[in-house]
Simulated assay, not measured.
Amino acid sequence: MAKTQSVRASLDKQPHEVASMFDGVARRYDLTNTVLTAGQDRYWRWMTRKAVAPRPGEQILDLGAGTGVSTVELGRTGAWCVAADFSQGMLAAGQSRGLPMVAGDATALPFADNSFDAVTISFALRNIADYDLALREMLRVTKPGGRLVICEFSTPVIPVFKTAYRTFVMKVLPMIARVVSSNPDAYVYLAESIRDWPNQRRLGRRVAEAGWAGVKWRNLTGGVVALHRGYKLGS
């Protein structure tokens, strides 16, 4: 059996630590996510695509795209979609998908102003140390009238489920990851980062403060995940 690489980031989320950690999980990242979520990851990707509502000919930025599995989902409607991530290992693991891929930092995106009809980021915003700056960068590269969709772990809204979910995240999730992941210690960070992340209302406030208009959110799977949406003023 191949020896796993043990790398994890801390909650101060230094970019080199986070990138190295995701390089370490890249080989089995998609499989691990499907196992840990009991297949819900596919549903969340589908709902994210519906929220983005990409149309043929539009240009969509999938930020924090990892191996590009979310980018493939977005492209099903005929939009031109580019996968961007700062983990070289994740992008390399997804090369076989034949997608446009760009290595880049979410806080200093390598794109011109007003480049995209929509920007979306799934399960990656909480891994960015200065996510307020990242939200402003997303606004910069979005065309006037364009839209933002964030898919991220959030706070369950059913009290009993909330307690059970916290137990799963902090205790069970890392145990399962040790069986299926190529870097199980990374999932200890994952659990901690979920616990430390703001709830739906507080995140919505931060999105609005970054300059996005009409910010709303929708809970998925009882609030385990939330979709936050907004748009850039102008036409």
Rank of each mutant, 00 (worst) to 15 (best):
D117P: 05
D117I: 01
D117F: 06
D117G: 03
A118R: 03
V119Y: 02
V119E: 05
T120H: 00
I121E: 04
I121C: 13
S122T: 13
F123S: 00
F123A: 01
F123I: 00
F123P: 00
F123W: 02
F123V: 02
A124I: 03
A124T: 08
A124Y: 03
L125M: 09
L125P: 02
L125N: 05
L125F: 03
R126T: 00
N127V: 06
I128D: 01
I128P: 00
I128R: 00
A129N: 03
D130F: 00
D130L: 01
Y131H: 14
Y131L: 02
D132E: 14
D132L: 08
D132Y: 08
D132R: 13
D132A: 13
D132M: 07
L133K: 14
L133E: 13
L133F: 01
A134N: 03
L135E: 13
L135I: 10
L135Y: 14
L135M: 14
L135R: 10
L135S: 11
L135F: 13
E137V: 02
E137C: 01
E137H: 02
E137S: 02
M138I: 07
M138S: 05
M138G: 06
M138E: 05
L139V: 07
R140K: 04
R140D: 08
R140P: 07
R140W: 08
R140T: 05
V141D: 08
T142L: 03
K143L: 11
K143C: 05
P144N: 06
P144G: 05
P144H: 04
P144L: 04
G145D: 10
G146W: 09
R147V: 08
R147Q: 10
R147L: 03
L148M: 11
L148F: 12
V149Q: 13
V149R: 11
V149W: 15
V149C: 13
I150V: 15
C151H: 11
C151I: 10
C151F: 12
E152L: 04
E152V: 06
E152M: 03
F153H: 04
F153K: 01
F153A: 06
S154M: 09
S154Q: 11
T155K: 14
T155I: 11
P156W: 10
P156T: 07
V157P: 00
I158P: 02
I158T: 12
I158E: 14
P159M: 07
P159W: 12
P159H: 09
P159S: 08
P159F: 11
P159L: 05
P159A: 07
V160K: 07
V160P: 01
F161H: 07
K162F: 03
K162I: 00
K162R: 15
K162G: 04
K162V: 01
T163A: 12
T163P: 00
T163W: 14
T163R: 14
T163E: 15
T163N: 09
A164T: 11
Y165L: 04
R166W: 13
R166Y: 10
R166G: 15
F168L: 07
F168C: 06
V169P: 06
V169F: 09
M170Q: 15
M170C: 09
M170D: 14
K171G: 10
K171Y: 15
K171L: 12
K171F: 14
K171D: 15
K171V: 12
K171H: 15
K171W: 15
